[in-house]
Design a binder for these strands. Structure first.
Length: 195
DNA sequence: CGGCCGATCCACT
DNA sequence: GTGGATCGGCCGA
């Protein structure tokens, strides 16, 4: 399928993109070791400087958060709880730190390799729900931070799923209680897949 | 330089 | 429902 072009990620509305990414396919071929991928079924939008849940809240710029300020179309990957590598899609133009956390995928290719990476049986990989789990299965680590999402390590593809057949539900984001009332914003999106 | 803690997950009870 | 694993980033001194 066709890869999302670099311009796709420049859209100014990160919430729109968080919804739009549902049903597209997140693919990896880390160091050419094998293609793995799945349909994106859960996302969360992080709306930058005005969003208390965002790492870039208040315009904070550090070595880690610098990635989010890059031009849309790169990966923002960071280590969480000392053991989980969380994958985000950076969006918007350079200087506006918007990002979308990928929280769940439905595996469609490379199940053998993903099973090997996660230590699970292939048939147990019906869905990879959890941002730390899916990166492990896809072979994504902080080594791919700042990776351009239009090369041969990590990319996102169109699928045959049409936007008018997407059933989407929204709700508050997970694990961001520190963000106060911003944690209640309905910036989490899930795709309901029938069959 | 020391200490705290997180956009989590899994094994237990 | 609870707690342990595990470590880089961040902040305050």
């Amino acid at each position: 399928m066709k890869r999302l072009p670099p311009e796709y990620y420049l859209h100014p509305d990160v919430v729109f993109l968080a919804r739009d990414l549902l049903g597209k396919a997140l693919m990896t071929n880390i160091d050419g070791k094998g293609v793995t991928g799945g349909i994106i079924v859960e996302t969360e939008a992080y709306a930058g400087e005005t969003d208390r849940a965002s790492h870039a809240y208040g315009g904070r710029r550090t070595r880690r958060t610098e990635t989010i300020y890059q031009k849309g179309g790169v990966a923002y990957i960071y280590l969480c709880y000392g053991m989980h590598h969380l994958f985000n899609v950076v969006t918007n133009i350079e200087g506006i730190p918007h990002a979308i956390l990928i929280r769940g995928i439905k595996p469609i290719i490379g199940q053998e390799l993903m099973a090997h990476r996660t230590g699970k049986r292939p048939e147990k990989l019906q869905t990879l729900n959890g941002p730390g789990k899916l990166t492990k299965a896809l072979g994504i680590t902080t080594r791919q931070d700042k990776t351009f999402l239009y090369d041969n390590n990590i990319w996102i593809e169109e699928t045959s799923l049409q936007s008018n057949e997407k059933q989407i539900i929204s709700g508050p984001r997970i694990g961001v209680d520190y963000a106060g009332e911003h944690a209640q914003w309905p910036y989490r999106f899930s795709l309901l897949l029938t069959g």
